[in-house]
Computed example of a mutant assay.
Amino acid sequence: MATPPHIPGLGAFLDKDSSTPRPAAPRPVTVAVWLLVLAAAAQIVASVMGIIHAVSPERAQVLQAQLAADPASTLSLEAMRNMGVITVVLAALATVSAYVLFAFFLHKGRMWARTATSVLVVLTLSQLVGIVFPGGFTTIAQLVLGSLAIALCYMPASKTFFADMKAYRG
């Protein structure tokens, strides 16, 4: 029987088949996972609001004024609206995917996911620039949920779980 190829770094994503039982995730880690899922849901709400704004008559007036200010522009109003919608959708897909992926790997006890979640929450701070309400409430919700999740991941029970999972994977 052939030996499977060795792929460097693949151990960060796959668990070894071990005869010892896998340590159970403590309650703080489980709560942190659900907080990240809620943050992903907040991003979905924010994205829906962003799409509604991108196709609104008020946004069309702003885009029309930009087009009028630059007579050499070859873009149309519809092209600019479509670019706005596509940007919102792609940003939503990336952000929601990141929240869900990091939540999944936090539950699996991956320390890198804890660090990546911290970076994601710090990047969410950049959304506070030019924040407009009521849409800004979703950004604040993401910051609060993400910060609580990170805090829970650094509690003593969580630290022990991450260390135990590292030892379990060998």
Rank of each mutant, 00 (worst) to 15 (best):
T138H: 04
V96E: 06
A116G: 03
M111K: 09
I140V: 15
A72H: 09
A42M: 12
F105I: 03
A68K: 14
D15S: 14
T74Y: 01
V85R: 14
I150Y: 05
P4T: 08
E58V: 02
A91I: 13
V121A: 11
T74C: 01
L93T: 03
V31K: 03
Q61C: 00
L152F: 13
A149P: 03
L120Y: 07
A39G: 11
K159A: 11
S158A: 15
T115L: 13
V31E: 08
A113C: 05
M155A: 08
L152G: 02
M155V: 03
T117Y: 00
L152K: 02
A68C: 05
V100K: 01
R169V: 09
S76R: 11
Q64G: 04
V96G: 00
Y168Q: 10
G109S: 06
A69I: 06
A151N: 02
Q61L: 11
S76V: 08
V48H: 00
Y168A: 08
K16R: 15
Y154N: 12
P21C: 08
A39V: 05
G146P: 04
H53K: 14
V37G: 00
T20W: 03
I51M: 05
L63C: 04
A25K: 03
V45M: 11
T20Y: 10
D70M: 10
L93M: 09
T115W: 13
I52Y: 02
G11M: 06
A54Q: 12
P57Y: 02
G136D: 06
L90E: 04
R110V: 05
S18Q: 12
A79G: 05
P26Y: 04
S126E: 06
V48K: 02
V144A: 14
G130H: 14
A69F: 08
T30E: 14
A42F: 11
L128S: 12
L67A: 10
Q66F: 00
L123W: 10
A151H: 01
A60W: 01
V48Q: 02
L123M: 14
L35W: 08
S97R: 00
G130T: 13
S47L: 07
M83E: 14
P156K: 03
R110C: 04
H6R: 15
M49E: 08
T20D: 15
V29M: 09
P5E: 07
D70G: 04
L35A: 10
V96R: 04
L38T: 13
T87I: 05
M49S: 07
L36T: 01
L106W: 09
G9I: 11
P134W: 07
P26R: 10
P23R: 13
